[in-house]
Design a protein around this nucleic acid. Sequence first.
DNA 1: CGGACAATTGATCTACCTCAAAATTGGTGG
DNA 2: CCACCAATTTTGAGGTAGATCAATTGTCCG
Lengths: 245, 245
Amino acid sequence: MNYSAQQALQTLITKLESDSTLGEEERAALLRLPVHIRQHKAGEDIVRERDVSGQCCLLVAGWLYRYKSVGSGKRQILSFHVAGEMPDLQSLHLRVMDHTLAALSAATVAMIAHTELRHLTERHPRVASLLWRETLIDAAIFREWMTNLGRREALAHAAHLACEMYVRLEAVGLAREHRFHFPVTQENLADALGNTGVHVNRTLQSLRASGLLVWQNREVAIPDWNKLVEVAGFDPTYLHMKTPR
Amino acid sequence: MNYSAQQALQTLITKLESDSTLGEEERAALLRLPVHIRQHKAGEDIVRERDVSGQCCLLVAGWLYRYKSVGSGKRQILSFHVAGEMPDLQSLHLRVMDHTLAALSAATVAMIAHTELRHLTERHPRVASLLWRETLIDAAIFREWMTNLGRREALAHAAHLACEMYVRLEAVGLAREHRFHFPVTQENLADALGNTGVHVNRTLQSLRASGLLVWQNREVAIPDWNKLVEVAGFDPTYLHMKTPR
DNA sequence: CGGACAATTGATCTACCTCAAAATTGGTGG
DNA sequence: CCACCAATTTTGAGGTAGATCAATTGTCCG
């Protein structure tokens, strides 16, 4: 599908308005942002660790993810992203990328120049605050992931990720009835959970066997939400959504 | 020692000016912020998970840290903080705390009301950007810690933390000659590294035995910086400091 | 149909955990 | 200044979650 600049920016406006309504002028200013729409194939890097970029990426459709590499081919996936998010918004104030942003699936993104964003945020402190807030939620999710990586075992960790993704996706209309599409391989999942692919495979089998979670063919189904939440120790406070569930 | 409001705010100004100089008016506006100075004893919680707070904490002297609890007494330490930092600045835009802020050592803090900070940032977009930037660096450090937790083994992880703390402390004049004071117990360290106290103890012994790192009595000494950096896989890019080392 | 990638299985290994006790250290009151 | 207490650090001896290595079996497409 082809997206217009207006459609692309509308996904951002929708996101920002999930917290609080924007004024007419603020909305107009956002819609006036010049964007450059691009397509990325699954697996492509969009911005790389050490790059100095002059623009931010607004995800319009598809999935992105971020990762860091450590020596000898190992890497840690830091986050997954869906439409309406700006996964490299931090580059607006940090000169150099400390990680890589890449396409998980085929994806449509809208690139927005830093100069334009700076101009906008100087003129509209309320928009600045909402964008700032998005980066703070990003950080809150990192904190939860740190806790998952350091203090939860593999099974609870995988369950926790499923809970998180469901809540986030449901909030933007990309999931319902405790099912959703999530285009990760088990190898990707391993890089996110800090395990090996083999172990993730066995973990998913165990979750499946106990009827907690069916995660197959990039589709996730949660037969018993309450039980999964309990196993995961999942508490959505850290997602800082308007409607607590 | 007793600190005046002016002295407290000066630590913040110094921090913000490590990136770029402030205008005279901006500096004056910062110094005009009403603050409430408080002392905390080692171990005290300052703001707790689930609290809704109306102010931010500026650390003036001593050490703070943040942590998240998971069931059955386990917890994950998320960060360590020294003078000039505002460890709960995120609360300015996130209503509820998703983790706890506590005193690692006896500490002096200056509390600043959200209303005052909002007023300031609306009027001074440049100051807003610099504060935003501080929270982005905070998040960048989380990303590195995620990588440490997920993809580095205990020895490299401990070495990495020592490298990070040295670089951060040296930048604010709290460390020199590859030595510094760091008031954590091995149990604290375990909660930060995602290990057990027993294993941290053995890890530190091993680092000591190999001459890489002497970490005893809350004092850290790094006999061979280059070797430690290599073992840790430490690359300071993620700290986003003005002077790359 | 063939090729590439992804999921699965089995067997073995190891980094780190658990439990429990002993040795040190530092701070405090007498 | 010393004795004592409580918090830390250290040591030892198993145990286990998850890693590693190496096939084998799908599965998706061009």
